[in-house]
Design a protein around this nucleic acid. Structure first.
Length: 415
RNA sequence: GCCCGAGUAGGGUAGUGGUUAUCCUAAAGGACUGUGGAUCCUUUGACUCGGGUUCGAAUCCCGACUCGGGCCCCA
């Protein structure tokens, strides 16, 4: 019986993996430059960490199981909750703000399709401790710059849940989240009938539909005309001014609700192109979670980049490192090993492990894309030298080991 | 959970009811003793799985699984 990988998982071969490594490094570099530090959390957590804020309903989308100690645990479906758990557990008294980033695999039991897998990677950022517009703007600007470092210019939409929540303040929190969910889905019909069901009133319905349809340059002023001069609008206004200072282009969009209950203020999403139905490459906002995990209430802002979706639209070719094939004979094996050991301090080098004859070693070097063959033979050794062969030009000459290293390192710096 | 499409050696494919399943490529070995990509030869390797129809199924039917795309969902 032939085994294959579980549904919704992927193998990454060297070519693809190199690309992912490149992209991750680029994102990591930007995050570090902005003063964010990497953290890691466990691959699995107690299942309550994920059900506490979202209810038992999410269990259908989670990989959860009972361990041998009869603990109910789950593979993490996302990283915001684990990071906040880490914060509550270890860092509540640390100087604020805390700036963290992570790049980890997450697991969701969902039907795979384009840009959606059961094991997927999120590159995320959380800024903990500030509710100020400066924090929100910084986080958005960082998201844009991260994607920009990969040559991706997405379509950034920014909204603020404080405004819609203000409009709905008379309603219970149950009803509020139901409405936010419908707004997030852009399900106008469902929203209309739900508003009818709860007797929301014509004026509220009209205001709501007007608000969530607002986009672009005049949206803020129009929102102000609907809900008045409230704090949330002033906050969003400040965020936008800061974004202008960051040189970030955005579209104001009051239709963004995010499917999550815990977002409280600013929310944003970035959409990519050519991604089919799953076109959101980044999403986030400001939220309050710490109190749910037994900590003191603290404001945070963060986002997650859908790393796999970024990889779908990323167009780079990774240059291969120059590699040297050390070619030897039956009677020069030990010398060849010494040569390889020295070469490896400077360039990638490998030896034959298939017991191949000279000619077939060369042939493999060629097939595997080695840039150089370093031939360790009796005739060379007698002169204290090696033969360096350039596999592309087919030129070769006898050189000392030091000269060989010099040649190859010089060449690899040109790549 | 639902809908549509697709599954033939490692990769790419031909085969629409009838001998031993086609071809390309790949891999391993050889022709070739210290100079690679060519050529030739040998070898390896497949009908996704399970039922059904039939004298006979890779082929037709049903189901499952996997893949691709979409819906639902997306904390």
């Amino acid at each position: 019986m032939k085994l294959n990988r579980p549904r919704g998982t992927r193998d990454f071969l060297p070519g693809e993996n190199a690309k992912r490594w490149y992209a991750e490094s680029a994102l990591r570099r930007v995050a570090e430059c902005w003063g964010y530090s990497e953290i890691k959390t466990p691959t699995f957590e107690h299942v309550e960490l994920f059900t506490i804020k979202s209810g038992e309903g999410i269990l259908g989308e989670i990989y959860n199981f009972r361990d041998k100690g009869d603990r109910e645990v789950a593979l993490r479906p996302e990283l915001t909750a684990p990071v906040m758990r880490l914060y509550v557990e270890e860092l509540q008294k640390a100087p604020k703000p805390l700036r963290f980033y992570y790049c980890e695999n997450c697991f969701r039991y969902e039907n795979p399709q384009k840009g959606r897998f059961r094991e997927f990677w999120q590159f995320g950022v959380e800024a903990i401790g500030s509710a100020r517009p400066e924090a929100d703007a910084e986080v958005i600007a960082l998201a844009v710059e991260m994607l920009g470092s990969l040559g991706i210019t997405g379509d950034l939409h920014v909204g603020h849940l404080g405004i819609i929540r203000h409009l709905l303040r008379e309603l219970g929190s149950e009803q509020q989240s139901r409405i936010l969910r419908l707004v997030d889905k852009k399900d106008d019909k469902g929203l209309e009938s739900y508003l009818n069901d709860i007797n929301a009133g014509d004026s509220l319905s009209a205001s709501l539909f007007h608000l969530v349809g607002l986009r672009g340059g005049t949206a803020i002023d129009e929102a102000r005309s609907i809900v008045g001069d409230i704090e949330a609008i002033a906050q969003l206004d400040s965020i936008l001014k800061l974004l202008d200072a960051y040189g970030v282009e955005y579209t104001v969009d009051f239709g963004i609700a995010r499917g999550l209950d815990y977002y409280t203020g600013m929310v944003f999403e970035i959409y990519g192109e050519n991604l089919g139905a799953q076109n959101q490459v980044c999403g986030g906002g400001s939220y309050r979670l710490a109190h749910l995990f037994g900590g003191e209430d603290i404001p945070s802002t963060g986002y997650a980049i859908g790393f796999d979706r970024v990889m779908e639209i990323l167009d780079v070719s990774i240059p291969k490192r120059l590699t040297a094939a050390v070619i030897y004979f039956e009677d020069t094996r030990t010398e060849a090993i010494q040569v390889a050991r020295k070469l490896r301090k400077h360039v990638p080098a490998y030896l034959d492990i298939m017991g191949r004859k000279f000619k077939d070693q060369l042939s493999f070097a060629s097939a595997s894309g080695a840039a150089y063959a370093v031939i360790v033979g009796k005739t060379e050794l007698d002169e204290g030298k090696l033969t360096l062969k350039n596999m592309l030009t087919k030129e070769q000459e006898k050189l000392t080991l030091e000269q060989v290293i010099e040649r190859i390192t010089a060449a690899s710096q040109q790549v």
